[in-house]
Deep mutational scan, measured.
Amino acid sequence: MASQGTKRSYEQMETDGERQNATEIRASVGKMIGGIGRFYIQMCTELKLSDYEGRLIQNSLTIERMVLSAFDERRNKYLEEHPSAGKDPKKTGGPIYRRVNGKWMRELILYDKEEIRRIWRQANNGDDATAGLTHMMIWHSNLNDATYQRTRALVRTGMDPRMCSLMQGSTLPRRSGAAGAAVKGVGTMVMELVRMIKRGINDRNFWRGENGRKTRIAYERMCNILKGKFQTAAQKAMMDQVRESRNPGNAEFEDLTFLARSALILRGSVAHKSCLPACVYGPAVASGYDFEREGYSLVGIDPFRLLQNSQVYSLIRPNENPAHKSQLVWMACHSAAFEDLRVLSFIKGTKVLPRGKLSTRGVQIASNENMETMESSTLELRSRYWAIRTRSGGNTNQQRASAGQISIQPTFSVQRNLPFDRTTIMAAFNGNTEGRTSDMRTEIIRMMESARPEDVSFQGRGVFELSDEKAASPIVPSFDMSNEGSYFFGDNAEEYDN
């Protein structure tokens, strides 16, 4: 783990906690998980779902989305002020799938948001429990990260689609708070800032007046979040320049895209947490497990152990491969979309394939898809080993990566060399080191050039047997250095459309 220093740990961010010791953190995270579980059980009762239907990941996603929508204050306010045809701002819903006479049927349900809020609060001892809501947002974000390569979004903001390893959390809503900021990748933060800068260039009043003052505060806050992700002084200094700019424009845009590229080699610290679907927490609570009393951590053995003992089902389209669908969801559960496939294969105990080789589309089923041909199958979400999630980018030494994705962002704290394609990355730096950030740029390029592919990161860190909950005997895996390590390699994943 990167030293926490003055930073709060993510469990504290996750639970809005002030400084807590490890036991208190485990208890408050457990409380959050228990609340999600209780809410899910109650919703299944309301909807009269069978046990099997309640364990269907598509039903879980609909129920999670309903509660997130019920608590989305800004959108609710907007919907009330701008009524649109056929949208009731006070209601929320989605597809629920039921097994009827041996076939899967889709039923569109509609609930009062007020009623959903009441059920959620009741499951969370009367609190709004925003930490639990954020947790579900991060699960949705991790699922998107594993399912889609955001080529269009990258290109629109002047970045290269091969930089997708920097895009963790790119679909997280803005209201996801400190826990959300911690899991956002460098590219995601750059993209958010670039969008602001572009608006400022096109709209003279963007930075002016009372609204402009708020915009400015948001801009500086985002700059500080991004600065905190960088691990070298030169990158941090460049972020200070971007933040202090009187009138952010093209120079800042250039600096930010430069920094994003540099992060492929001088990786930023991005938190990883295993956020599971509500249909995993519900049955665990129903079986009598007391998360608050037992304590829970999002970055240790607990999620692995929970998945070892969970039964989750998914709808499967006619030509999809259930094992591939399982891999997709497994990666999402562990926030591992940008991790090295060699490491993932070792931990999972079966070969993890790149996205383009998977015969599976996303987990969600569109409303126009034919239910007649839908089957369902068990998702295999178990693992051979477990490993500690990392909050750091690993040290800054790398190795060759593949054509589709030119770097990785480690999820697990496991000893290995970190793949990246130096030639491709360095070719993108057209040696432009003039301007006010020239000395920093020169320094950053120097550090990137001296990074050695064969150097090892996370020295001495290994994986653990599932029986080793105290992480007492690390097993340090050895990897084939020459092997392909990137998930979005030469990829044809669908595009994420909101």
Rank of each mutant, 00 (worst) to 15 (best):
L379K: 02
D455S: 14
N368M: 07
K273W: 03
D421W: 02
R156S: 08
G362I: 03
V363W: 03
A387C: 14
T423H: 00
V456F: 11
A178K: 14
S345P: 00
L56P: 04
E292M: 06
I444W: 07
L276E: 07
A471S: 09
R38P: 04
Q409F: 00
F338D: 00
C279N: 12
F253K: 04
S473V: 15
R267H: 15
E465S: 00
S402R: 09
H324R: 10
R246N: 06
I406K: 04
C275Q: 02
K90S: 04
G5L: 02
H135E: 01
T257A: 14
V280Q: 01
G462H: 05
A179Q: 06
Q12D: 14
R204N: 01
E53P: 00
N370C: 00
R452Q: 08
P95T: 12
F253I: 12
R99H: 05
D240C: 11
E14N: 02
E339L: 00
M222N: 06
G394I: 02
R213V: 00
L49N: 00
V280T: 15
M371Q: 14
Y78D: 11
A428T: 10
S9H: 15
D16Y: 10
Q122H: 13
D160S: 02
F39H: 04
R156E: 03
Q241L: 08
K77G: 06
V476T: 12
Q405V: 00
A70D: 11
I301Q: 10
S345D: 14
S297H: 05
G209R: 05
G34T: 13
A181S: 15
P453N: 08
E46H: 14
V299K: 07
S297W: 07
T437R: 08
W207Q: 03
M136F: 14
M222H: 05
T188V: 12
Q398R: 14
M371C: 07
M137W: 08
V285N: 11
G126H: 11
G249Y: 07
Y385P: 02
R98V: 05
R452I: 15
N59Y: 09
M447Y: 04
V186F: 10
R355F: 04
V183M: 02
M440V: 15
M426T: 12
E372Y: 06
N395M: 04
A153H: 02
M66R: 06
